[in-house]
């Protein structure tokens, strides 16, 4: 009798655990959709607003979720360049302002890495950038105006030195050889 009760207890426990695990699995598998849209910023010089809306398949917004935004770039092959990340609000919306480095069409990707109860997802959008960040200009180093001329001055000195060496060698050789020729004529005379 006691064996039967123990077996029944184990089976019951197994059933309860299985049901719990199945419930978690069902919860983790709950899908979400990420809608991404881009629009010009209210202040055009600030670039574009990237807005990602994360909603579960049942239509409820997913809040407090971190969304990462990427720009697809060509850098030794196609790569995702991280723009930044933002957290969804109560309506499941995460926004980020982005000023591209280059003009022209851009492909933007927003990614949600998933969390307990919500599966990972991503959304894509395109952007025709008509404003871009100013090209980065290196600040002139101190004394750059002066130091840019130094190589020319040093080069002139080096050339002058080589010219002097050449003059010393060739001038001496010419002088000695000319003297020798005159001596030859004198001897002949």
């Amino acid at each position: 009798m006691s064996k039967v009760r123990r077996l029944a207890a184990v089976c019951g426990l197994s059933l309860i655990v299985s049901l719990l695990l199945a419930g978690v699995a069902v919860a983790a598998d709950q899908r979400a959709v990420l809608f991404l849209e881009t629009r010009p910023s209210a202040k055009p010089e600030q670039g574009y607003v990237l807005a990602a809306r994360l909603v579960a398949t049942d239509g409820r917004p997913v809040n407090e979720a971190t969304v990462r935004f990427y720009d697809l770039v060509e850098f030794f092959g196609a790569r995702e360049m991280l723009i930044g990340s933002a957290t969804t609000d109560g309506q499941g919306i995460a926004t980020l302002t982005y000023l591209p480095a280059q003009l022209g069409p851009r492909a933007i990707v927003a990614k949600f890495a998933g969390r307990a109860g919500v599966a990972a997802t991503e959304g894509r959008a395109s952007l025709a950038a008509t404003v871009a960040a100013q090209p980065y200009t290196v600040e002139p180093a101190p004394l750059s105006a002066f130091s840019s001329k130094v190589p020319y001055a040093v080069g002139a000195i080096v050339l002058a030195v080589w010219a002097l060496i050449g003059f010393a060698l060739i001038g001496t050789a010419r002088g000695v050889m000319t003297g020798a020729r005159k001596e030859g004529k004198w001897q002949t005379a």
Binding site: A173, V176, M177, A180, R181, E183
Partner: peptide, 8 residues
């Protein structure tokens, strides 16, 4: 170079 010790 044809050196002869000439003054030149």
């Amino acid at each position: 170079l044809g050196w002869r010790g000439e003054p030149r």
